[in-house]
């Protein structure tokens, strides 16, 4: 049996984290599944556990200037319900599990689980979300794309906690989040796609294209996106085949119990194709 802690506030939580490196557990919707054992026995945690879901200081979501700040223990339901939540993130969050689970699960948890199939993560990559990490006495902020380093792996220090996720709010004209799940609700992703784009003076001014569950992490290539900046609608349309061919080199899925590599790749490229058409046809 492992030790467990219930800090009285954030300061206490940071102290415990610093002292014992306990695993933070907010909603528990991933961790309790990951460490499940025979019903009626204790879960198989090997590290001490610190409950953080009750920390009210972190249970908030608010707009601050041109950003949406999601507190470290804000639930997926809170994210879905907030009027300023970008549409792709709202769609992504609402595609996760069922309402009862979303009432408990946190956005932080979905990020720290670091699954390439994490639905909110696919949207957060496209939204350039920043992860705020705090430890006793200091804090730092990392782009989510840097924070997540591999399947189940992040740069979260042993003594750090995620205290907020900051999402820059841009008025993007064109956006799309699509999840292809194993069924229509309460499903895990076979793959997911997020596209966000905007024009300025008839030329692409910003674009973000991300793909979930087709590689060890969510896939986003800033390099390939750069090639699209400045293109006109006609140029985008004319260059579509070469864009698709570029992306086919960075989308490298695998076969597993939910789908096949061939299907994942083909559908990811289909969704990209469809999104490029939407962008090119945007009036």
């Amino acid at each position: 049996m492992v030790d467990s802690y219930r800090p009285k506030d954030l300061k206490d939580a940071l102290r415990i984290r610093g002292e014992y490196g306990s695993t933070p557990l907010a909603g528990g919707t991933d961790l309790m599944v990951r460490y499940q054992s025979w019903a009626g026995t204790l879960p198989l945690f090997t590290n001490s556990v610190m409950f953080v879901g009750h920390l009210h200081e972190l249970k908030y979501i608010k707009k601050i200037e041109n950003s949406l700040e999601v507190g470290g223990t804000a639930t997926l339901s809170m994210v879905a319900d907030h009027p300023d939540t970008p549409r792709v993130l709202r769609d992504a969050v609402l595609s996760i599990a069922a309402p009862a689970l979303r009432n408990n699960a946190t956005l932080t948890g979905n990020i720290c689980n670091a699954s390439p199939a994490g639905d909110s993560v696919c949207a957060l990559y496209a939204l350039d979300a920043l992860i705020r990490l705090e430890k006793n006495g200091s804090s730092r902020e990392l782009p989510v794309v840097e924070f997540i380093t591999g399947p189940g792996r992040t740069l979260l220090g042993k003594d750090e906690l995620v205290t907020a996720i900051t999402i820059p709010l841009k008025n993007s004209s064109i956006d799309n989040f699509t999840k292809v799940g194993t069924r229509r609700a309460n499903a895990l992703s076979k793959l997911s796609f997020t596209g966000i784009a905007d024009y300025k003076n008839g030329r692409i001014d910003s674009i973000a294209l991300t793909f979930g569950a087709v590689g060890p992490t969510v896939v986003r290539s800033v390099e390939l996106e750069k090639k699209l900046l400045g293109l006109s609608r006609a140029e985008l349309k004319a260059g579509k085949e070469s864009i698709l061919s570029d992306y086919s080199t960075v989308i490298v899925p695998i076969d597993d119990q939910r789908s096949t590599a061939v299907y994942r790749k083909k559908v990811a490229l289909n969704l990209l194709d469809k999104f490029i058409n939407e962008v090119a046809d945007y009036e």
């Binding site: 194993t182 069924r183 229509r184 609700a185 309460n186 499903a187 895990l188 119990q257 939910r258």
Partner: peptide, 26 residues
């Protein structure tokens, strides 16, 4: 949607997340 495959004699879909049955939305 109810795919149940064998890999070396074991069922690959072993959880309710991987062996999915229809919901009322399906």
């Amino acid at each position: 949607i109810e795919k149940c495959e064998l890999k070396n004699g074991a069922f690959m879909q072993r959880t309710m997340a991987d062996y999915t049955i229809p919901t009322s939305l399906d």
